[in-house]
């Protein structure tokens, strides 16, 4: 049913992504799909890396550390954005097209006060604007 699963990851909050990562790996095994881990970073230094190249290397290492479905290879693709807080949804939509993913499995957090006022729900925005299935895991 699905051949390529895109999993957006925030390398600075991996502890909150356990359920989403496990779900994506279970689905990959079930459908014999490969997983593409996608992450968006700023061009400025972040808590994860000094620059986008180092960030990409760390995402690569993360992808290699996750189990792949039998006979499949997981991969990673990192994106830079001039203003990640705003450009996240747009960049992830572009990533869906570029990776050729037919399913997105995405961890989301419980909305806080800031989310209620300013609506920064990347998951729901992605589901609203993407042509592929989006599985939000809370």
């Amino acid at each position: 049913m699905f051949s390529r699963i895109m999993v957006p990851v925030d390398l600075s909050h991996l502890d909150q992504l356990d359920k989403a990562l496990t779900t994506s790996e279970d689905l990959a095994r079930t459908f014999g799909a490969e997983i593409v881990y996608v992450s968006v970073t700023a061009e400025t230094p972040t808590a994860i890396a000094h620059n986008p190249t180092e960030f990409a290397q760390k995402l690569d290492a993360f992808a290699a550390s996750r189990p792949a479905a039998p006979g499949k290879t997981n991969s990673a693709k990192s994106y830079t954005a001039h203003d990640p807080a705003i450009d996240m949804d747009k960049t992830l939509l572009k990533a869906i097209e570029e990776t050729g993913a037919d399913l997105v499995v995405m961890g989301t957090h419980k909305p806080g006060i800031a989310d209620r006022f300013w609506g920064s729900h990347h998951g729901s925005d992605l589901a609203s604007h993407s042509g592929v299935s989006v599985f939000l895991v809370r």
Binding site: P52, A56, Q57, A63, Y79, H82, K94
Partner: peptide
């Protein structure tokens, strides 16, 4: 393997070349 792209579709210059990271 990691593939990197900028949000406007241009590849990130990789590697960035040596800079003196503190």
């Amino acid at each position: 393997m990691t593939d990197s792209s900028s949000s406007d579709g241009e590849a990130i210059p990789a590697p960035e070349g040596p800079a003196n990271i503190i």
